[in-house]
Design a binder for these strands. Sequence first.
DNA 1: CAGATTGTGTACCGAGCGGTACGGATATGA
DNA 2: TCATATCCGTACCGCTCGGTACACAATCTG
Lengths: 210, 210
Amino acid sequence: MPVRGRPRGFDVDEALERALEVFWRQGYEGASMSDLTAAMGINKPSLYAAFGSKEELFRKAVARYAEQDMGYARHAIAQSTAYDVVATLLRENVLAVTRPDRPAGCLSIQGGTACSSENAPVAEFLAASRLAGERALADRFARAVVEGDLQADADPAALARFVMSVTEGQAIHAAAGVPREELRQTAEIALTGFAAVSGARRSATADNPA
Amino acid sequence: MPVRGRPRGFDVDEALERALEVFWRQGYEGASMSDLTAAMGINKPSLYAAFGSKEELFRKAVARYAEQDMGYARHAIAQSTAYDVVATLLRENVLAVTRPDRPAGCLSIQGGTACSSENAPVAEFLAASRLAGERALADRFARAVVEGDLQADADPAALARFVMSVTEGQAIHAAAGVPREELRQTAEIALTGFAAVSGARRSATADNPA
DNA sequence: CAGATTGTGTACCGAGCGGTACGGATATGA
DNA sequence: TCATATCCGTACCGCTCGGTACACAATCTG
């Protein structure tokens, strides 16, 4: 069942990718439709036909970001010990927020922590998705407590909040131009601190990559 | 030598205070001149006469913020041990980003981490001022190493980066609505982790406030 | 081929943006 | 009292914002 009518003259995925980078660099409110269409290589009616509105475009960009740039978080949570989870999360986060082929920092924060009242839903949406990630990490830590992998009196939610706070701070540092190597030091400090506070045992797996 | 001409019909400090809160809540780009003048209770020509431009107004708001809302950082750095410095900084930061009479979070981040290219100087200015604070903390830690208060192999800049990352993450959490009590837990985790990593000795002074 | 359907480019919409010109109001100093 | 200096309010500036109307181009079905 082939398409009817004139075929689209651009690649939707590629256009979304370009839009994603503009939002990442300039934030939701700082990215104008002209900035977006210029980067996407299309005109406004094409953008509206394909994506609906600026806000829908942004939400689709965030979804794409979560899938292709936040994969490391799912990878981290899948590790077999709490220590490995945090080691992977913090170290891969450093790489993710300082990729030379991408804007610095993290879309979830650069997108906008504060907005005009009319765009408040955008900031709330970003905040909610960050907290959802934090909840997933807390659930993973809760499992680690059950498995005896974290000491029994550890507070999974508080530990998750601590780790996420560090990654957010790292993203802000990266956006400010702090280089990867310096963020790596911070990640190691946070990891060591996490182990000391939570009773998580270091792991040869994570600390001596093959 | 009294003033000549018609006297100003509003209090400049009070107007700046109102503008500060609007910038804090909505960010630099999200705060329109109409939002600002409405909150300040004045008309645009009065604003321009008194403050110059939107960007100058913002910079004056940030200066005021640094003086009256970031005082805790100077207070923290003045503590007599590295542990007390960090304990004070993390704990007072929690209070500062969750004050019920102020917007949630921190102006330095809410103001704007990403901007349209034309407003890029604003984001750069905020990033630079955050890093200046971090450098002051690193200098304080360097002194602590000299004084034997931190172990000799401690990296002052890296430790300062870690602590600042946590406070930035806390500010983002606060802006997302995370309550004070939860941030307090995070601060204690970060503080314990800091002590474990740096060799800083706990202090009865900071941990048992009078 | 005709007709239906869909995408493209131009040119435009009302609204709001940051910023200002200007005349009237209110003070001082002579 | 009157010139001078400063501030206030209205009304406006050019520009850009997010979003769309419309004519035309390109493809499918029959």
